[in-house]
Write a protein that binds this DNA or RNA. Structure first.
Lengths: 193, 193
DNA sequence: CGCATATCTTGACAATGTAAAGATGTGCGG
DNA sequence: CCGCACATCTTTACATTGTCAAGATATGCG
């Protein structure tokens, strides 16, 4: 059932091929026709599974986001307490994108930034990594027996997020890796304060 | 000399038209042919001034970067001391991109991030806003009579930059503006700690 | 078995980037 | 003033790409 006219699981194959192409030549190298060709299928075949090129791109983003989310969860799980989880997550946030800078631009570079769950939902309410951060932060507060106002809590979370995200952004910029290498200790030092 | 076959100053006109288009429809709406049409000129005319579409895009980026840099300089100049300059710059960094989110994606979203001075040069050595930040930070150290190791200084600068940049990135994400509005007080609170 | 449907192919079209060849104006040396 | 080199612009052409429509092919269900 997987040969000849019908592919078997073309949808996933297209997503995988898309990821491969992005890893090799960045998002610019990504075209519907190339993805189709990489799956040995005609140029219009993707339209049986995706309404748009955009819909394919969003599916690829979702896949990359899952991979990203897994690393974050693993980082959080590998800590002894909530504070350690926060630190680990921050480090993972940066190292994940340092390892594949194209992913950073792919996920955060275009218009509709994160379409993982639903594009119509707000980023801060619906983006799983952000939810994980908020939950971990809450555990951290309990752990340290800290009482803070809602507003202050939100600022804290934004602070954590933006420092990790900003650091990842800088680390992903071309021509940065040589003059400042992002080994773990330095990342840790920047994030921690 | 400005009518008929020769345009007068087509190069600048193309850049301006490009900026206008980006403001209206984002970078996706930007095509060489549209830019040319907006200047009332044939679709191949730009090739007399730019080798590539990319070269035009880089010129547009340079122009936007100049605008950005001006605002940062103004923000720094409007402070009484270096510490105030740092705070003002951080606030301006965010508000500039909050005012035009398309610029953020345009400047930092694509592959060759910042080609303002020369793409072959390193970001941290050659990007004017970064230089301004480093200088202001040095003044701040003198002002406060602080002595720090080179390494620690570099970390501080990265910290300042990445927190502002990360905050701008989050603020520019679609669907964020409603649930958390980036009025000056909040930006200030996030950046300052 | 036969049919509705999902899946895929083929062919076409418009938009785009780009190159080549030629037209047109500008300015400079004579 | 003339003519010529050069910059600028147009026209034409072509490859790539996203998208659509029409048709072919397989799959599963009654």
């Amino acid at each position: 059932m997987s040969d000849g006219y019908h592919h078997g699981n073309l949808r996933q194959a297209l997503i995988d091929a898309g990821i491969k192409i992005i890893n090799e030549s960045g998002e610019d190298g990504l075209s519907l026709r190339k993805v189709a060709a990489a799956c040995g299928v005609s140029h219009a075949a993707p339209y049986a599974h995706f309404k748009d090129k955009e819909e394919l791109v969003e599916a690829i983003k979702a896949s990359v986001n899952e991979q990203f989310m897994e690393e974050l969860e693993q980082a959080a799980a590998g800590a002894k307490n909530a504070e350690g989880a926060l630190i680990n997550m921050g480090r993972s946030y940066v190292t994940f994108f340092v390892r594949n800078p194209d992913y950073f631009r792919f996920l955060f570079g275009s218009q509709n930034i994160i379409a993982h769950p639903r594009p119509d939902k707000r980023f801060k309410e619906d983006y799983p990594p952000f939810t994980l951060l908020k939950d971990t932060y809450q555990k951290y507060l309990k752990e340290k027996k800290l009482k803070k106002k809602k507003e202050e809590q939100e600022l804290d979370v934004i602070r954590l997020w933006s420092s990790a995200h900003g650091l990842a952004a800088i680390a992903c910029m071309p021509g940065v890796e040589t003059s400042f290498d992002w080994e773990e200790k330095k990342i840790w030092a920047v994030l921690l304060r």
